[in-house]
Design a protein around this nucleic acid. Structure first.
Lengths: 132, 132
DNA sequence: CTGCATCCTGGGCGATACTG
DNA sequence: CAGTATCGCCCAGGATGCAG
């Protein structure tokens, strides 16, 4: 409501970088495509897991998708796959150092998500009076 | 290749938060769903634009999708819509302060994307030596 | 110029069953 | 237990045309 500056939202941004910037974002989102990868990375950020554990903890994902995503992520060097035991076979997945660099990014995503949820809740409350 | 620590990737993470964390990420990605919103926000991070300008600068997007995404984002309070002139009608879009908070997040996405592109390029160079 | 309605296709994703 | 194969749904999103 405060009629603040009408400036470019984020200072320090030069329009000349715009194209590159967008392309770079696109590169990242390309790797993180689909419905599940970010969730899987988030989970693995809390420690390595076996296939079946991930399957249980990522609610809603099917076996096919998990396999596919995992394979895809391995090819992109986001996770490391290790066969633990042969009988019965079991496989461990963990983030690569490379992918660990993504965790702070994902954390900030989460941060914003929390605030957003707050805002949405507030909105619904605003019907009667302003409440804390 | 360095056999580093086998610890939990990111210290300071408690498993008890895992569920909440993932949910929060999901909330954000829910708002940012689809193929275009992040790109649009990135662009608008470089300054307000008119509908037709965005249409031109976001390569590949169709008019229908732009309208749809814009409306959706307005409902989520990510952007502000302002009618500039009536004849011919023209509309300006800009990020809300609320959404500006997302820019640093997107920036880090871009940051990682740049590094990732580097890595991919490196990989192709590495053909000569041992490959699986 | 901005924005909506309609039609249509591709592929993301789920369910199930099967192999090693 | 880990992963693959098959089938099919469904909807994001492209193309086009119309309206204010």
């Amino acid at each position: 409501m405060e009629n603040e500056t009408e400036k470019v939202p984020c200072e320090g941004r030069e329009y000349s970088n715009c194209g590159k910037h967008i392309a770079a974002v696109h590169d990242t989102m390309d790797v993180l495509n689909g419905k599940w990868k970010i969730t899987i990375i988030s989970l693995l950020g809390f420690g390595k897991r076996r296939y079946s554990e991930i399957l249980k903890e990522v609610t809603g994902i099917s076996g096919k998708m998990l396999s596919r995503e995992l394979k895809d992520m391995e090819m992109n060097l986001l996770i490391k796959r290790t066969v633990i035991s042969e009988q019965p076979i079991s496989v461990m997945y963990e983030l690569t150092d490379y992918c660990v660099d993504l965790l702070p990014v994902i954390d900030s995503l989460a941060e914003w998500g929390k605030r957003h949820r707050q805002c949405i809740v507030e909105q619904f409350k605003q019907e009667p009076v302003e409440v804390i």
